[in-house]
Simulated scan of single mutants.
Amino acid sequence: MSPPHVVRLELDTFSGVDRAALATWFGAVVADLLLPLCPASVGELVSVARDYHPSDTTPWGPPGYARLLLSTGEFTPASWSAALADLPSFLRVQLVRLDSQGLPLVDGGWSAEVLLKDDPAFPHQITVTASRSLFGGWISLVTQQGWLSALKSGATLVRACGGWVTLDRSGVRTEHEAAVGVGLDESLFTAAELCRGPHWATLLGPRQVAALGGVREVRSTAPCFAVEDLGGGRILLQLTEHLDEVPPDAVRELTEFLAPVLH
């Protein structure tokens, strides 16, 4: 089996969000996690995307830069902030790195995405991904801690019902969801009650923590390298010290521990 190729962070929430704060968090994630992998600033990316005219050879954007997509129109810092301040029925923002032909990079790229719907029954999703190959096959502890910090701050900001950081093979579904045959829609709509799988970093929301016996029980019994109480009934489980060193036995133990809140 080929090694996992994507570092993936995701947060799911049914809560209303502080849109100005979310815009700031999203910008910081792009700047801190992704732009070190890309030789351009956010301002330059926005400027180039605004002035770019697609062609037959580079339909998505200028080679070596990124495409910025906003479902409500042109992506600029002002339009992003305005869209969050006055949320339409559906909002999707993507920042996607492009290859030398101006096409979205898959194996060697990165992306950040915020997907929100003005519907309390619809789970909002915030996703950040980067190809493992960008890190030269070795992801430093400093980089790993950066992804953990982003997960923790984002979880508190959006009052997340769940989330994770992982090395991933499965695309939009988690490895657990793919293995047990659970569809994405079902997983999203049950995300408050059911964890979407065991991961290197697994964020448990309040309902999941309660189903596992409460904060004290989870903190004392979770088979993990580190267990952190984030407040508000949320707990972050870090399975092993290193993101790219997760033995199958460790995953199996965590799966057994999470069994009451897994599909």
Results as ranks from 00 to 15, higher is better:
residue 15 S to R: 11
residue 20 A to N: 13
residue 24 T to G: 07
residue 26 F to M: 03
residue 26 F to I: 02
residue 32 D to T: 15
residue 44 E to T: 09
residue 55 S to R: 14
residue 60 W to D: 03
residue 67 R to H: 07
residue 67 R to F: 04
residue 68 L to M: 03
residue 68 L to H: 00
residue 69 L to T: 13
residue 69 L to Q: 15
residue 73 G to D: 14
residue 73 G to P: 10
residue 73 G to R: 14
residue 76 T to G: 09
residue 93 V to K: 00
residue 93 V to I: 13
residue 94 Q to F: 11
residue 99 D to R: 05
residue 100 S to F: 07
residue 103 L to P: 00
residue 122 F to Y: 12
residue 125 Q to S: 12
residue 127 T to I: 15
residue 135 F to W: 09
residue 136 G to M: 15
residue 136 G to D: 06
residue 137 G to F: 11
residue 139 I to D: 12
residue 145 Q to P: 00
residue 146 G to A: 13
residue 152 K to G: 08
residue 156 T to C: 12
residue 160 A to H: 04
residue 163 G to A: 14
residue 168 D to I: 05
residue 175 E to M: 06
residue 180 V to I: 10
residue 183 G to M: 15
residue 188 L to S: 15
residue 192 A to C: 13
residue 192 A to I: 06
residue 204 L to D: 01
residue 205 G to N: 11
residue 214 G to Q: 05
residue 218 V to Y: 02
residue 224 C to E: 06
residue 225 F to A: 13
residue 230 L to M: 05
residue 232 G to P: 10
residue 234 R to L: 13
residue 235 I to R: 02
residue 236 L to P: 01
residue 240 T to R: 07
residue 241 E to A: 13
residue 242 H to W: 09
residue 245 E to C: 14
residue 245 E to H: 06
residue 249 D to V: 08
residue 249 D to T: 05
residue 252 R to L: 12
residue 263 H to L: 01
